[in-house]
Nucleic acid binder design. Structure first.
Lengths: 257, 257
DNA sequence: GGCGGCATGTACGTAAGCGTACAATAGGAA
DNA sequence: TTCCTATTGTACGCTTACGTACATGCCGCC
């Protein structure tokens, strides 16, 4: 598949400086003037494992830009059943409703792997988005990719076996991490995939036996990335293609607009 | 649940005039000046059953506003498995990628119940969106509701039984139609829900026996709407709430912005 | 007025995942 | 060291939906 950035480069993980450009790719792609306007409002913040970035039906106060770590858009049912419907890393923005000019949403966002980033007041961000075309274009482009990811997840969760979905999830998380090794319990993965913990044990066991991953006591390590890709469902590839398009050049229409 | 508009009122179904305001609620909500700018570019169009409005990975030429009929956002897998991930009626806009400043998408949109509406050239619509704040706000608000719908569908397809999902689908379609009676084959519904036709026969049979619907030879009729609501999964109610919010007043932030 | 095809009814064995329960092990705290 | 708790392993019966196959019935075409 597409080449990955070497892991060694990004050793700055937890100590992103307030000065200069942050690691978040949306912020990094802003024009100098746009970034300068946002900068005084950006507040550096550490994000703990399982920390909520916003909750369903509660007015959203901040928009988050992750530098490291991974967040999940989660849908929780009345009976407590929960499932992840989208994943957000340093390629994106947490706080979709704000970009839609809204203040609440029926879904929540939690940290899936702890990390750090910056946040900005929701109304301030909304006003900046209205003011700056380039920021708006970037945000819209990201929303599109994220929307596609959610649409893909819908079909994926319905059609594909747990094994394949595990592979996809591990790869997506890995793509958004700086390391092949990250904290993850089977319990948590089960919640993300909306299945029983026992089911994940089965699936993960097979993957480990086949040398694709190694795990234990709340950590996973990707041992054979290509093997995982082969074993994952098509959804991973489709999302990755879109993801790479996002990080590439602007699509024609917006570029012209 | 919420009261419905009486069916009798909307007998204009197929003959929407080019003059005056169309039935599409987004267009109907535009300011006079915004609508005046769009109007010369709007082209009236009839939309046949199963007609594609755009296909995956093919550049989108037009944005559609339905007056009548219902369209579906569909995700098709490599092996031919397909599932609907979103439903669009006269409350919305078909052509999300365009509103994101993009030209292609990995999903397709097909007509699920034939109808009529207007279309506008994609680049023209994009430019108008950039120019007009009120149009942009309306579009963003709709995108948010639609996004929520897709996120809900993802969890729904995963957690809920076919019976309940059938009820939800019938209700959502019914909400977007002018009649309680519309064309629908079990084969088609099966494709929308991403299940076997035989499975739908079972589920629909039960609903008919219980007097909730009546169907045959490619048509359904909703007999007991409240009964269906009771039997549907929570996803219907959640979506409906959001849907009603969309058609109500502007959310705080955008109104202030 | 018969025929062909679409729409629907039904059945049987199979597979994936659920709900639940309980055992085993490892890391950290006292 | 010892204990406690979080994490992981495994089993059993059950439900839902799958894949496939075949039967029935209705509509419209010739």
């Amino acid at each position: 598949m597409a080449k990955r950035t070497p892991r060694v480069v990004v050793k700055l993980s937890t100590k992103v400086k307030g000065i200069g450009r942050p690691l978040n790719r949306i912020l990094a792609s802003l024009s100098t003037v746009d970034f300068a306007r946002l900068r005084p409002h950006l507040e550096k913040i550490d994000l703990a494992y399982k920390q909520p970035l916003y909750d369903a039906d509660v007015p959203i106060k901040f928009v988050y830009f992750l530098d490291t770590g991974v967040a999940s858009l989660v849908n929780v049912m009345r009976n407590g059943d929960a499932a992840e419907v989208g994943t957000i890393g340093n390629e994106g923005i947490v706080g979709l409703p704000v970009m839609f000019g809204d203040t609440v949403a029926p879904t929540s966002v939690y940290m899936q792997v702890r990390g750090a980033g910056h946040r900005i007041s929701a109304p301030v961000f909304w006003k900046e988005m209205e003011r700056s075309l380039s920021l708006r274009l970037l945000a819209l482009r990201y929303i599109h990719v994220f929307f596609n990811q959610v649409a893909q997840s819908a079909a994926c969760a319905h059609f594909h076996t747990l094994d394949k979905r595990c592979c996809r999830w591990l790869l997506m998380t890995c793509d958004r991490m700086q390391e092949d090794d990250f904290p993850l319990t089977q319990e948590f993965l089960a919640m993300m995939l909306g299945v029983r913990r026992a089911g994940v044990t089965q699936a993960a066991g097979k993957l480990q036996r086949d040398g694709l991953i190694h795990y234990g006591r709340g950590r996973v390590r990707i041992m054979d990335r290509n093997g995982l890709v082969k074993r994952a469902c098509e959804c991973y590839g489709i999302g990755k293609r879109d993801f790479d398009r996002l990080l590439g050049s602007l699509p024609p229409m917006a570029a012209a607009g």
